[in-house]
Amino acid sequence: MTRHSQRYRTTTLPFSYRDKGVDFELDSFTVDDGDRIALELNPSQTEIDIASAVSSSDSSGVPNWDTVTLYGKLYLPEETIKAVFPQGERAQPPAKLYVTIRCHETIYRDRVVISKSPTTSGEYEVELEVPKNTVRGTVELRPYLVRTEAHPGEEPNDYADQKNFRVASGKLYYIVVDRDNDEERAAIDGERVRFSQNAHLPDGNKLYYLDFRNMSRPKLWINSDHPRIAEVLQSRGSVGAEARMRDVILDQVSYGVWVQLLVRAGSAVDVEGEVEHEWQEMVLQTFARNLYDTNNVPEATRRLKGDLSDPETLPHVIQRIDSELQEYIDPREQLIHLMEEGLQI
């Protein structure tokens, strides 16, 4: 793994942050239980096309892979630790290191913890699983170093002092897992259309609508009656004002969509903790365990069904759902990026 000095940009955050403070390199991947395939990347390459490696299909034309696993390393330099933690915390930094997995097309987001607190400088092995039923098109991977404890000091300083503040990040990779001709791959479809010209869509200035007419395959409609918003949502960049605005809009949309999907999936759970449709299973697998702090998914889904059905517990479970989605989506991150761009204009 190449070691090199980093040039850091100055941010408008009220504390020290390093957007290139974590070295991130991917070197290989596997498809299901197949042999590991080496990635021969150029030093500056961030887009990795593995669509051809996972394009095999069964007789019905449906891709027959389940999981792509990517392998690599993270390197956390000592200079990053010194830059984002005060002297007294550098020996045992109260931080965790994780990689986010995000797919805009299916509004999927997850994270894989690479190192729990304390996280010291050094090299860490990375193994990231990407399930087929949660993604489509391009998947984004990015590492973050995140503070895990509030700083006990009362005096203001140049360091982040609150729990869950991100203090460093690294290279953003774009993993292409399929092409446009694989539209049937996603559990949830999306399309941009003018609401004003479609009778089955709501009137007014709605930004989006989640359509459950086909319960086996919900569809997300984005209102192209708002052409500027629709244009921003098609932005593919990772920096700049449009990319930041796109991410904030997607966070807003995904929050409302996830609430609907989670409530509908939880309400559909049967007495054995099972559901009928693939998207319902995906939603419950993603959220139910965290909502009830258990690794037993059937137990968690049954409890969710009960809480959603009881008027006395409904407000409390909605509050837990809100808290979980705020943690899952982390809208603060994208809002901070957007504010940074605004202050530079």
Rank of each mutant, 00 (worst) to 15 (best):
R102N: 09
Q197Y: 10
A300L: 10
F29P: 04
S224M: 07
S57E: 14
T100C: 02
D23C: 04
D330N: 15
R179S: 11
N223H: 04
G256N: 13
D35L: 06
R142H: 06
A83I: 07
A300F: 08
T301L: 03
R236K: 15
W258L: 03
F85H: 01
L233A: 00
A300C: 12
P315W: 11
L41W: 07
Y174I: 05
S60Q: 13
K96V: 02
N296R: 11
R289C: 15
V99C: 07
R90V: 08
N205L: 11
L284R: 12
R36M: 10
I229Q: 13
L13F: 15
V271F: 13
D33M: 01
R3Y: 05
K96Y: 03
G256E: 08
A168I: 06
E105I: 06
W279H: 01
V239A: 12
C103M: 00
E127V: 04
S60P: 03
E327C: 07
A243M: 02
S238K: 04
L261M: 14
Y159W: 07
R147Q: 06
Y173P: 03
I48T: 00
A230C: 07
T119K: 00
A265L: 02
Q87H: 06
V232P: 02
P315Q: 06
N133S: 11
T313F: 13
V283M: 10
S267E: 14
D182N: 13
P63G: 02
L335Q: 14
D32G: 01
R303T: 12
E155L: 13
N42L: 14
L172I: 07
R320T: 09
V271M: 13
